[in-house]
Design a protein around this nucleic acid. Structure first.
Lengths: 295, 295
DNA sequence: ATAGATAATGAGTAAACTTCATTGTTTTCA
DNA sequence: TGAAAACAATGAAGTTTACTCATTATCTAT
C-alpha cells in the first residue's frame, strides 16, 4: 500500500539524483531505500526509475508519483507543523462561546491583546443563543465558554476569571434612586430592559425576581448594551447589568446604579474548558488575560 | 511520523462514528485502530478525539487532520488507480518520437485508432529534430521512437513494423522517366527536395549518394510532404520518399516513381522501446496497429 | 584495467503493527 | 436503578514489515 514514506523517498531521490545521497538526507541507509523502492515497484508491478541513466531518472509511472508527492507533501508539512506547535501549546483553536452579551465589553479588548500574543491560534466568538454552550463545549464545537454559573463536570473544568456585581441601572431622576438598595418588589411596576435570551439565563430572573416570585411591570429586549442603556434613560426603565459594563457607561447616559438586595448580587465569571486541553499554553494564556481584563 | 494509514483511519472513524465499525471497514481489529490512534496522539502529544461523546467527535487537532485527509486522499486514490492500471498495461504514457516527417502519413491514422482502443494512455508526438531520439528514449523523455535504422542496444529493443521501399518521385514528363531505375550519378545535375533534417538522417544521402560520392545539383528543403511533392512537380526536381507516401499521392500530382538502384532501396521501419516496458500491453497495442498501418 | 562510486541483494535484527484476551466505560433498555 | 450490550482502552504475545549490515554486482572514469 502506498504510504507517505514512499512519496518522501521518491522526492528525495529525484532531488538528489542518487539513492545514496537521498538515503543520507532521509537518515536511512542506501540499502533501506533500495528495498523500499523495490517494494513499491513490486506493488505496482512497474519500475519507477530508469536504472541505466547516470543521474537516476524517473519512468512515467515514477513521474506520476513524484508529481503527486510535490503536490501533496507541502500540504502535509503545513498541517504537520501546525499540529506540532499545537503540542507546544503555541498553536490551536480557540472558539469562544459567551452566554451574556455584556461580556463583549471586556472580551473584545482582551481578544485584541490575545491575538497579538498568540498569532497561531485561530479565534472565533460564537454567541451562545441558539445552542447550549456547555454541551457544545463537550462535543468539541467550541473550546471555551464564558459562564457565570459554576458547574461540576466530569470532562470540563471551570476556571474563575473575576468577580462582578450585577447592579440595577436607572436614570438619575428615577423614583427608585431614593433607595440605597433595591428589593424584588421594587421592580413589580417597572419596565425591565434585558438581552433577548431565555429568562433562566438572566440573573435578574433566576437569582432575584423568581425567588421572590415577582414579575416586572413590563419587559423590553435589546441586543446591544448601548441600546439597553439608551432605553433605560429614555423610557425611564431599569436594567440589570454587571458592574464592568456600568463603570464606564454611567456618566455618558445620565444613569446611576443601585445594588440588588442589601448585600448586592455578586457572581464570578468562569471560563469553562475541556479538562484535556485545560493546561494548554494557549488556553491558559487566554485565561490569564481574562483575569486581568478589569484591572 | 504521519503516514497515509493514519489519514485513512481518521477518515474512516469520522465516517463511521465509532472505532469498532471503522476497524471493520478498514479490515482491522478495533484494538489495532485504538493502538494506531493512540500512537498518533502520542506523536503529536494531543488528543484527536473527544472520547466522552457518543458518536466519537474530533478535537480541533483531529479536525485539521481529517480535513487534510479529505483533501489529499482522493488525489492519492486517483494516482494509485492510474498506476494499478499501468501495471495491467491499460494505462501509461506513450510519447512517440519520429525521425522522419513522412511517418505522419501513416502515424496519424494509426494514432486515431489507438486513441479509441487505449483511452487511458496519454499520447504525444515529439519531432526528433532538435534532439537525439534514441538518447531521449533511454533517458525516459520519450517512450517510443520510430526509426529506420536497427541498432542493438542494452536497454532498448527494436520491434520491426513494416518494410518499405524508398523511391524517387519525379514528374511525369521528367527526363529521368526514361530509365527503369535510377543510379546515383543520375542525380548529379538534379534538384533534390528533402525534409529539413541533417543529411545523415536522410537515406538518400547515407545509403545512396554518399556511398557513390555523388553530390546532387541542388538541394531544396521543405517541411511538409505535400509541399515537397508540389516542388517536385513545379520545379521539375526530384525527391526520395518512402513508398507508403507515394502510393496515394502520385496521381494527384502528375508524378511517377522510379526505384533507386537496380534492386531498389529497401528498409524496415522499427519501433524502438525500452526493454522494461516492451511487453506492456499498451506498447504492444501500438506496435500491432503500426504493423497493420499499410495493409 | 583498476579504482571509486553507486545500486542490488540476502540474511539477520529491530521495530512497528496486529491480534488476542481482558478490563474499563458508557449507553440503553427493562 | 441495575444489568446487559456496545464500545473503547490496555497489555502481552505474535506477526509482519522495515531497516541495517555485509557483500556482491554494476557502472564510470582516469
Amino acid at each position: 500500500m502506498l504510504e507517505l514514506r514512499h512519496l518522501r523517498s521518491l522526492q528525495a531521490i529525484q532531488q538528489c539524483g542518487s539513492l545514496a545521497r537521498a538515503a543520507e538526507q532521509l537518515h536511512l541507509t542506501q540499502s533501506a531505500l533500495s528495498h523500499q523502492i523495490k517494494a513499491l515497484e513490486n506493488y505496482y508491478e512497474t519500475s519507477l526509475f530508469l536504472r541505466s541513466t547516470k543521474p537516476l531518472s524517473l519512468t512515467s509511472a515514477g513521474l506520476k508519483l513524484r508529481d503527486l508527492a510535490e503536490r501533496i507533501l507541502p500540504e502535509i508539512e503545513l498541517v504537520d507543523g501546525q499540529l506540532r506547535r499545537h503540542a507546544l501549546g503555541t498553536s490551536g483553536r480557540l472558539y469562544i462561546s459567551i452566554e451574556c452579551h455584556a461580556c463583549f465589553e471586556w472580551l473584545i479588548p482582551v481578544l485584541n491583546q490575545y491575538r497579538h500574543r498568540w498569532p497561531d491560534v485561530d479565534i472565533d466568538i460564537r454567541l451562545g443563543l441558539s445552542f447550549e454552550p456547555i454541551a457544545a463545549l463537550q462535543k468539541g464545537e467550541v473550546d471555551l465558554v464564558i459562564s457565570s454559573d459554576l458547574q461540576t463536570h466530569k470532562d470540563l473544568c471551570f476556571e474563575p476569571l473575576f468577580d462582578y456585581e450585577a447592579q440595577l441601572a436607572l436614570a438619575h431622576d428615577h423614583p427608585l434612586t431614593v433607595k440605597d438598595y433595591i428589593l424584588p418588589e421594587d421592580l413589580a411596576d417597572q419596565t425591565l430592559v434585558t438581552y433577548p435570551v431565555d429568562r433562566k439565563r438572566l440573573d435578574v430572573f433566576s437569582r432575584f425576581l423568581q425567588p421572590a416570585n415577582v414579575e416586572p411591570g413590563q419587559v423590553r429586549q435589546a441586543e446591544l448594551t448601548a441600546i439597553i442603556l439608551l432605553l433605560v434613560s429614555t423610557l425611564k426603565g431599569v436594567a440589570v447589568l454587571p458592574d464592568w459594563v456600568l463603570r464606564e457607561s454611567m456618566s455618558h447616559n445620565h444613569l446611576t446604579t443601585r445594588p440588588l438586595g442589601a448585600q448586592g448580587m455578586h457572581g464570578t465569571l468562569h471560563a469553562a474548558v475541556r479538562k484535556v486541553e485545560s493546561k494548554a499554553a494557549y488556553i491558559q494564556g487566554f485565561i490569564d488575560l481574562g483575569r486581568m481584563a478589569l484591572k
